[in-house]
Design a protein around this nucleic acid. Structure first.
Lengths: 195, 195, 195, 195
DNA sequence: CAGTAAACGAGACGGTACGTCCCGTCTTATG
DNA sequence: CATAAGACGGGACGTACCGTCTCGTTTACTG
C-alpha cells in the first residue's frame, strides 16, 4: 500500500515480538546448538507467547532457519594488490571467526539439518555463497593479474582454503591450539603459483 | 572365570539384541541423522524392548555413540611407491565414501553433538584419527623419500586434503556433481613439491 | 475478576476433560479397585491425553484421592421422632449402599492406601465424618429426649452401628445373604436403653 | 513316597529359600502393605533369585496369599465362667492386636484384594473364621447358661463386637487414642442381656 | 479521539519420546 | 536338580517438548 515504505506496514508490536524471540533463539543456539532450541523455553524466557511465535514463524524449523540465515556476517572482499595479501586478510578473518564466534558452534547443526531439510539446505547454500564470494573475487582478480596457474580452478582453491580451516575447527578437537592460517596460506600460494 | 573364552561369556541373547538394536539404529541414523533416532521407534521396529535397550546402553546418547563409533571403516594405508599414487588411492576412497556412504550424512550430526557432549567429542576424535592415520603414514613415507618440501607440515597437508573433500560434500550443496579428487590431488602435489 | 461468575472462570475444556477423566477413573475403580487404576488406561479410554491429566492432577495418587473424595454421597439426618425410626432409616440406607453401591468395593482400597499415605488418610477422615454425622445427630437428638442411657457415649454407639454393617460386608464373605440391619437395630436399641 | 514323613521330601534348600522369601515378604508387608511388596525387591534383599521364588509360588498374588494366611495367630477361646469375663479377654486381646500388631496395617490390603480375587477371598474367609471362632464358642457357652437373650443371634453379637473395634481402628483415624474395649464390652452386655 | 481490527498472553489440548521401575518368563552356568 | 544370575518383552509412571486451539485483553492504526 505504502510504496515508499514497505516496512512501515509492520506493526511495532510485531517487530518487538520478533526481536525478542530472535534474541532468545540466538542465546539458546549459542548455548546448545540447533537441537537445544525449544519453543517452550523461548516462551518462558522471552515473554513472548507460543501463539505469537507460531504466528510469525510456521514452525520451529522456520524460526531456526530465519535465525541462522542472519548469522553470516558477509565479509568484504579486500583488495591489497596481491593474492597473498588478500588471502591473508580473508583467512585471518575466517580463522578468527572460527576461533571465537558463536556461529561456529552452530554451523554443524545447520549442516546436519540441511542434510535432510530442503529449505534448510537452501538457506545453507546462501550462507555458504556469502562465505565464498570474497574468496572468489580475490582469486579471480589474481587470475587476471596472471598470479594463478591456469590449471587451478577457482572453486578448487576455495575448497582448499576454507576446507582447511574448517577441518581444523571441527575435526581436530584434541588440539587446543587456536586456528591459524599461516601454514594454509603458504600451501595455497605454492599450489596456485604459475609454472 | 572362564579362562578359555573371554568373549564366550557374552550371552547369545545379548549379542542378538545388541545386533538388532544397532541395525535399526543405523537405519534411522541414515534416514534422519542423530536427532531422528528414537528409542521407542527402535523398540517398535527391532522387536527389542526398551528395557533391554537401556540394559545395554545407559542412555540414548550412549547408544548413538556406540553406533557411530563403529562407522569408521578404517582405511588401509596404501604403498604404491609414490606420493601421487598413495594420495590418489586415499582421496579416491574418501571421495567414494563421501559420495555414497551412509555415514557421510550422519557425520555432521556427530560434529554437532560433539560440539556440546564431551563423550561424543572423544568418540569423534577417535573416528577422526582413524581417517587421518593412513594419510599421515603416506605423507611421512613420502617425506623420507624427499618428495615433500620441508616447510610443509604433515598436519597441514592432511587438513588441506581431507578438508577440501569435506568442503565439497557439505558446503557446496548446489552442485550435484559427484565429489571428485583429481583437482585436489593436483593442487596438493603442487603445494608440497620441494623447491 | 469476574465478580458475577465465580465458577464461570473455569474453562469449559477443563471441565470437560476433568469430567471424562473422572468418569473413566470411576469405571476402573469399580472394576479393579484403587490398584487397578492406570493413567495410561484412562488416556486410552477417555480420549484425554496423559499430558492433560497431569495438568489437572499432580499425580496418580492425587487423581485417586479426588475421585474417591467425591464418592461419599452424604446422607441426610432423618427426623422421625424416635431413635428407633431414625436408626432404622440410617441403617437401611447404609445397608443398601453396602449391598450394591460401587464405592463399597472401593472403600477397602481407600482404607489400605490411607494406612500409608497421609493425604489419603485426610481424605478418608473427611469421608468418614460424612458417614458419621447423621448418626451423630440422630443419637444426640435421642439423648436430649432421654432415650439413651447416660453411660452410652455417642461414638461408641456409632462404632457399633456402622461397624456391624461393615463387618458383615467385608468379613463375612462366605454369606451371600444381603446385608440387613434389623438384628443390628434391635441390639443397639437394647444396648442404649436407659435403665 | 515316604508315608511317615511327607515333609521329609522337602529339600533343605527349598525350605531355606521359602523361609527367606517369606521373611522378606513380611518385612515389606509391614512396611508398605500388600501393594508395596515387590518380587524384585525380595530378590534383592533375600538373596533368593526370582526364578526360585516363582518356582515355589506361581505368582506374586500366591506368595502374598501364602504370607498373609500365616498371619492370623488363632486366639484361644477363654473360659472364665462368665460372658463378661470371656468377652473381656477376647476384646482386650483383639484391641491389643489392632493397636500394635503388624497385620492390622496389612489387613485392609487383604480385604481389598479379596474384593476381586477369589483365591484371596477364600484365604480371607479362613482368616476370618479364625477370628470369629473363639467369640462364637464363648457366646454359645453363655447362651447355654441362659446369659443371652434368645433374640440375639450369635453372628450378630460377633459382628457388633468385632465390627466395633475394627471401626475404631480403620475409620477413626483422627483419634490417636488407643483402641479400648471397655465401652464396647458394656454395650454388648446390655444388648444381649435377657429380659 | 473513538472504534475497530490486529496482535497478544495465557494456557488447555492431543501426541510422542524419554528414562525408570516392576512383572512374569526364559536361558545359562554353578554347586 | 535346585539354585543364582540375569536377559527378555511388556506395560505403567511422570516429564518435556511440539504444534494447534480457544479464550479475553491490550494496543495501534483509522475514520
Amino acid at each position: 500500500m505504502n510504496v515508499a515504505g514497505l516496512d512501515r506496514n509492520v506493526d511495532k508490536r510485531v517487530e518487538r515480538s520478533k526481536a525478542r524471540v530472535l534474541a532468545e533463539t540466538y542465546r539458546q543456539l549459542a548455548a546448545s546448538g540447533i537441537g537445544g532450541v525449544s519453543i517452550d523455553e523461548i516462551t518462558r524466557h522471552s515473554g513472548v507467547s507460543k501463539t505469537t511465535i507460531y504466528r510469525h514463524w510456521p514452525s520451529r524449523s522456520a524460526l531456526l532457519i530465519d535465525a541462522c540465515s542472519r548469522l553470516g556476517g558477509a565479509m568484504e572482499a579486500p583488495d591489497t594488490g596481491s593474492l597473498e595479501g588478500d588471502l591473508q586478510r580473508l583467512l585471518t578473518a575466517l580463522a578468527d571467526q572460527l576461533s571465537s564466534a558463536n556461529w561456529s558452534s552452530v554451523y554443524p547443526s545447520i549442516i546436519d539439518a540441511a542434510e535432510r531439510d530442503p529449505e534448510l539446505r537452501a538457506m545453507q547454500a546462501a550462507l555458504h555463497r556469502g562465505f565464498m564470494e570474497p574468496f572468489s573475487i580475490a582469486i579471480e582478480r589474481a587470475r587476471t593479474r596472471g598470479d594463478i596457474a591456469d590449471a587451478c580452478e577457482t572453486s578448487d582453491v576455495i575448497a582448499m582454503a576454507i576446507g582447511s580451516l574448517f577441518f581444523r575447527r571441527w575435526f581436530s578437537r584434541d588440539e587446543i591450539t587456536p586456528i591459524t592460517e599461516t601454514a594454509t596460506l603458504d600451501m595455497i600460494l605454492r599450489a596456485v603459483r604459475p609454472a
